[in-house]
Nucleic acid binder design. Structure first.
Lengths: 236, 236
DNA sequence: CAGGGTATCAACCAGAAGGTTGATAAAGGG
DNA sequence: CCCTTTATCAACCTTCTGGTTGATACCCTG
């Protein structure tokens, strides 16, 4: 299997700029910061927007250690894409949490919304959006917008990726809990083969292939072989 | 050597979906429609969001002729990217303009914001966002957000032109010298669409789609739609 | 102006694919 | 031992696709 450690699309650096500009231009935030994540999960390539240099320095020196959303601490395994910090840490905890009490609160920040971009489920970039105490609280409607923006950023990222992702096939099959035989059918369908050839390949009758296909269609909500292939290569 | 003036990125069809979802999810609009523009500047592949089918039909039958922003009428040379219709046509003119008086006003629309995507300064897609009379008027702040979204969409579009996936698509089409319409058919086929939907998208008859397909099969040596998709993304 | 390339559409047919119902059988878990 | 899951197959019908023939129309080029 290809070790795909070149998951950074060319131009990720400018992609990051564009994303930051998009987020700060559309959402009502007071400051923002973005970073990339290297394969040791270390944040690199920080870029800030209206963030006080002193605040950033303080973070880099000290408070990254207690950042509840720091990539090395925040579980990559949770598929979280958009998170509002005040939803993650309840108000009791916040009161005594050094990150809140000693860092963001003194800097006039009431809440942080963080967005994560992933490739092959691996964290590659993050965006932290700061809401100041002078601003209204983030409503669920605002979070919805953030999620919408995230979705598009993620889509855009995937479009510019190197080739099809190696585990697209597995993702697809796992997602819909396909059985071993069904996976084999999907594999052959993705080669553009007619049912007769698939039957020959699997050494079973045409009827059996059709039955498998019916089950696949049912499980995946797709309704033609053509769509399966399309899904496989155009996942987002 | 034929200059290949095809500037459609691969996956434009789903890109369009994502853009529509982004715009309607982030901006406060009541309905929306998007279209691609073929090389005769004809709008194709319409997709609507909360737009009454009857309203769309009325447009397609009649009012496209007087649409101040119709691609065939609206000057492509102006580099306009985001435009608010009420800024383009003054209130005096609006009063007697059939498009306002007889079409959008009776449908309860007070204003339309239109976004254009270009490649090499050539119009390739448009998005019309409808603001209903029940909604507050579009402020300059809202337009700024629309411009911000446009900027990112345009960026994302240009990124995808450099993407490996796009190159594969181009290679395939160039290799067999497919015509612009044939390429469009290939694009839609790769989305797993049935011929009927492709015909609807391209605003032509089923027979025409079949003919295009025959030519594609003949040129490429492939003999099914399923194989096309597979070939597109499985070239060595 | 003739001819090639492109785009359009119709009619027809054979075969493939999709959808449904129903049935059998082996494997595994509670 | 029953029940579920998985895999297998048949028959039937509808719809979609592929293949073919033939035709019109436009544009551009020689």
């Amino acid at each position: 299997m290809k070790t795909n450690n070149n998951i950074y699309p060319a131009g990720l650096y400018s992609f990051q700029d564009e994303c930051l500009s998009l987020l700060t231009g559309v959402l009502n935030v007071s400051k923002a910061v973005t970073y990339l994540v290297d394969n040791q999960r270390k944040p690199i390539c920080y870029k800030t927007w209206q963030l006080q240099p002193a605040m950033h320095r303080q973070y880099m020196d000290t408070f990254y250690k207690v950042d509840p959303l720091h990539p090395t601490q925040f579980v990559e395994q949770t598929g979280i894409t958009v998170v509002k910090m005040n939803d993650l840490v309840n108000s009791q905890e916040r009161y005594n949490h050094p990150y809140y009490r000693d860092f963001i609160s003194p800097w006039g920040v009431q809440d942080i919304v963080e967005l994560f971009l992933r490739v092959d489920n691996k964290l590659i970039a993050g965006f932290a959006l700061f809401i100041s105490k002078q601003q209204p609280e983030m409503r669920s409607e605002d979070i919805r917008k953030a999620q919408q923006l995230h979705q598009f950023m993620q889509f855009s990222l995937e479009q510019s990726l190197d080739a099809p992702k190696h585990n697209q096939f597995e993702n697809f099959c796992d997602q819909f809990q396909l059985t071993p035989k069904e996976r084999m059918v999907v594999e052959l369908v993705s080669q553009g083969l007619p049912n007769k050839t698939i039957a020959a390949g699997l050494d079973c009758s045409l009827a059996t292939v059709k039955t498998h296909l019916q089950h696949i269609f049912c499980k995946t909500g797709v309704n033609s072989k053509a769509e399966i292939t399309s899904q496989l290569y155009n996942q987002h």
